[in-house]
Nucleic acid binder design. Structure first.
Length: 414
RNA sequence: GUGGCCAUAGCUCAAUGGUAGAGCCCCAGAUUGUGGUUCUGGCUGUUGCGGGUUCGAGUCCCGUUGGCCACCCCA
């Protein structure tokens, strides 16, 4: 039996890797004053169709529950965010700086960097429509990657502005109902032959290509870059108006983060969505918002492909999961005393393991090594003293058992 | 959802249509109280699954499931 397609088993190393990612994400987010929240994994299907239309159902893990409710595993967190914010916004001072680590699901054919299940970091700043909020959120996205040791040689944030394009469409007297279709064409233009794009754009082609070829200037984005430059982060960003993003709900600045090599899918993406909360709450609450999401799959791939970054994270992981102490029971008749001390050591907060059954001393030392223990305590003929060995140096010293905790407490803090 | 490539031991991979193998991992030993190295031995396969062609199929053909890649879509 294998896991379902697009779903992953997390063996201990994978789990450790995942939680190392989460730990760093949390740390950086908290450094920006963001607080963690969460919502249900299962939501009403309507929550998603309301935002994206009925077509979205084809991409959902959805079903009818035993109470005849149409439900879906969450494909993303933003609709839940809008729902929660609309219901509870009065309980919080603005702006809200919220992050979450949801596991999200989508019914799609899997490929590299795109599974049917993934974890993503969502960061949203709600209730502030200023450019300063955009800057804060983009700086956070950059620092999340810098937090793993990535530099401007590893990734780039491509900045764009939906408003720039909607202004252009308005100037060209394009009716509103065609905007989303044309924005999609522009979004796709990078990956398609120029003639095809030109054909789809029709009379707009000249104006659009002029912008894509570098003829477009966005005062707003240039100001944004200056603000990032003031924080010393300008080297991580690049204005690129060809970024539009597929989602219809973005209303202003949008951005995507890519690896410099361009080998992977987007590492993160987001933007400003000032109307979505009002739309999903039927106008009950209207708050501007800006946010982004960063998935664990693509970021994990990038980390694994960047040896120095991976080594650093692996080092953190191995330190976090390692034992402190392994008890070697050289004489089985000393097991009762060893078990009493085992409990005392664990009560004192040490990570301690020992063999469950009689085993050769050599095997026990191998188990100590494999568990990453720094110290072994050997229980045998020396009792009432135990032989304490520092594995790294192979130094051994006899310690009276009643002095053990004190001795450990003095010599090794955690 | 569409198309192309792939599928052999737990892992990485060999094997002209002619007796399924290696390395790693794991387990056990190297005269019984000391680990990373070394040496010896052991374990594991319906060659993804189901059909077909053939004296004979891991190898060729069809189907199916799964993986990879490109589309679609991208939260």
């Amino acid at each position: 039996m294998q896991p379902l397609p697009g779903f992953r088993d997390f063996l201990p190393d994978d789990c450790a890797f995942r939680y190392a990612l989460f730990a760093r994400w949390r740390e950086v987010c908290r450094g920006y004053g963001f607080v963690e929240w969460d919502a249900p994994v299962l939501e009403s299907t309507e929550l998603y169709t309301k935002k994206s239309g009925p077509e979205i159902v084809g991409q959902l893990f959805n079903f009818t529950d035993k109470g005849e409710r149409e439900v879906a595993m969450r494909p993303e967190l933003t609709p839940s965010l809008a729902r929660v914010v609309a219901a509870h916004e009065r309980a919080f001072r603005k702006p809200l700086k919220w992050f979450s680590l949801p596991q999200c699901f989508r019914y799609e054919k899997q490929q590299r960097g795109r599974l049917r299940e993934h974890f993503q970091l969502n960061c949203d700043l709600i209730g502030d429509a200023s450019a300063a909020a955009d800057v804060e959120v983009i700086a956070l996205a950059i620092d999340l990657l810098r937090g793993f040791g990535f530099t401007a040689s590893n990734f780039v944030v491509r900045l764009s502005d939906r408003e720039f394009w909607t202004d252009l469409l308005r100037e060209q007297n394009v009716p509103d109902e065609r905007w989303s279709e044309l924005l999609q064409v522009i979004d796709k233009s990078e990956r398609e032959p120029r003639e095809k794009t030109a054909e789809r754009l029709g009379p707009l082609a000249a104006a659009v290509f002029d912008v894509l070829d570098g003829g477009g200037r966005s005062e707003k984005l240039e100001a944004l870059v200056r603000e990032l430059d003031a924080r010393g982060l300008a080297e991580y960003v690049k204005i690129d108006l060809s970024i539009v993003r597929g989602l219809a709900y973005y209303t202003g600045v949008v951005f995507e983060v890519f690896d410099r090599a361009g080998a992977l899918r987007a590492i993160a993406g987001g933007g400003r969505y000032d109307n979505l909360i009002a739309q999903l709450s039927d106008g009950a609450v209207s708050l501007p918002a800006v946010g982004f999401a960063m998935g664990d799959v693509v970021l994990g791939d990038l980390i694994k492909e960047t040896p120095e970054i991976f080594a650093r994270l692996a080092d953190v992981v191995s330190r976090q999961s390692a034992l402190d102490i392994y008890l070697v029971i050289a004489k089985e008749e000393r097991r009762p005393e060893a078990m009493r001390q085992l409990q005392q050591l664990r009560d004192a907060g040490w990570r301690v393991d020992c063999p469950l059954a009689a085993a050769k001393v050599g095997k026990q030392f191998q188990a100590a090594e494999a568990g990453g223990a720094k110290i072994t305590l050997l229980y045998g003929d020396e009792w009432p003293s135990v032989k304490m060995k520092t594995l790294a140096t192979r130094e051994e010293v006899l310690v009276p058992n009643e002095e053990l905790l004190q001795r450990l407490g003095c010599s090794r803090g955690r």
